[in-house]
Amino acid sequence: MTTAVQLKTRELKPGFGAEILDVDLAQADADTLAGVVDTFHRHGAILLRGQDMTPAQLVEFVALFGEPEDHTQKQFTLPGHPKVFVLSNREVDGKPIGAHNDGVGWHTDYSYKAQPVMCTMLYAVEVPAEGSDTLLADGCAAWNALSPERQKELDGLRLHHSYQHFMATREFGRQELSDELKRDNPDVEHPLIRTHPADGRKALWPSTGTVTEVVGMENPKGLELVDELVAFMTSEPFVFRHKWQVGDILMWDNRCTLHTGTLYDDTKYFRTMHRLWAKGDAPY
């Protein structure tokens, strides 16, 4: 049985996240890796810089957090590595090798699933000199900043999430779903306030794109409430902005955060990232 070791860390921002220092994931022993996992569960997000990982090593690493999750869209998974999804604006022989501008807009991954992914990992292969930052919003800090009266009003509300709605209305690459994708991704309901299973901490857990209504509340009032809460949670006090370097591994806990990508000059720069997910459980 392995035990977590004490790692050298520093906060990504006050009260949120941890950059783990002086760890080479490709060479790390089991105790060190257990410490990395433990740090993740306590801090909402982790960053490790200067990593050199093969796709197989990335899959092995994300499996320490949970069973690697499959991807809804299969066409941009890495050949030979179906758990690794490619984000890129590169083309080979006139065909894109990855999804471009994927993940722009505040959201939590797989929120349209009954069991959304627990964590998301991005590994930087190729990074623009400017732009393309990833932003993380701390749902626990946002929840704690609400008044007790406001917390009481919100706790217990549920949101209706729809993948079909998301794909039909998103800004980049709208898509009419196949019958198979519709069957595999039925609409779901999730709590607006989510409880973290590690320690019971609560997080504000709205999202954009997939949410069609607050259950039991007529629109536009319901969606206006969601927009208001997303704007609050993604305001400056609760947001960490990550500026990428090649070899960065950034992982965030989808149970207590929102995230968004940002645009860059895709006529001037190339960006290539490998994304992996670990399976989660039903929000409560």
Rank of each mutant, 00 (worst) to 15 (best):
N144R: 13
D265H: 10
C140A: 08
D187I: 04
E228T: 10
K152L: 12
A142T: 04
V86L: 00
D253Q: 09
N101P: 01
N89S: 02
L229H: 05
D31R: 10
F85W: 10
Y264V: 00
A56I: 06
D184S: 13
H107R: 02
A278F: 09
L25Y: 08
R275C: 00
E176P: 01
G44L: 00
A278Q: 05
F85I: 05
L192P: 04
P68S: 09
P197W: 13
L276T: 09
D227S: 12
G50R: 01
L78N: 01
E236V: 05
K243I: 09
L47D: 09
V246A: 13
L229K: 01
C140G: 03
Y264A: 03
D22L: 03
S147Q: 05
T272L: 07
Q115K: 14
R194P: 14
F172K: 07
D155N: 11
H196R: 02
P191N: 06
R183D: 14
T210V: 14
V215Q: 05
L204A: 06
N144V: 09
G247L: 10
T54Y: 08
E213N: 12
L154E: 01
H100K: 11
D248G: 05
G173R: 01
R49W: 11
L204M: 08
E69A: 13
L225F: 03
F172N: 10
T9N: 06
S88I: 00
N89Y: 02
E236H: 06
V246R: 14
H259L: 04
T262M: 07
K152R: 14
H100G: 00
A28R: 10
D187M: 02
L48I: 14
E130M: 04
W143A: 10
D102K: 10
R90W: 00
G94D: 03
T267D: 12
A30K: 15
H190A: 06
L21N: 02
V62Y: 01
D38K: 15
P79F: 03
E171I: 03
Q175R: 15
R90D: 06
T169C: 05
K83A: 11
L258R: 00
Q175Y: 14
L78F: 08
P283Y: 03
V5N: 06
Q75L: 07
V230F: 11
E236T: 08
D93K: 12
L48M: 14
E171N: 08
D265P: 10
D22P: 00
G247Y: 08
A137C: 01
K8W: 01
G131D: 07
G173E: 07
R49T: 14
E224L: 12
L122F: 15
Q73N: 15
L7T: 13
G280K: 01
E213K: 12
A129V: 08
G66Q: 10
S207R: 00
T195C: 09
S162T: 08
S235T: 07
H160V: 02
E11C: 12
T72M: 09
E218G: 11
P283H: 02
L136F: 12
I249P: 00
A45V: 04
C140E: 12
V104L: 09
V239C: 04
C256W: 05
A56H: 13
A145C: 03
L258W: 05
D31N: 15
E67W: 02
S132Y: 05
H196P: 02
T210I: 09
E153A: 14
T195K: 13
E218P: 09
G17I: 02
E171Y: 07
Q151E: 00
L7H: 11
D29I: 11
V23I: 14
Q6T: 15
P128L: 08
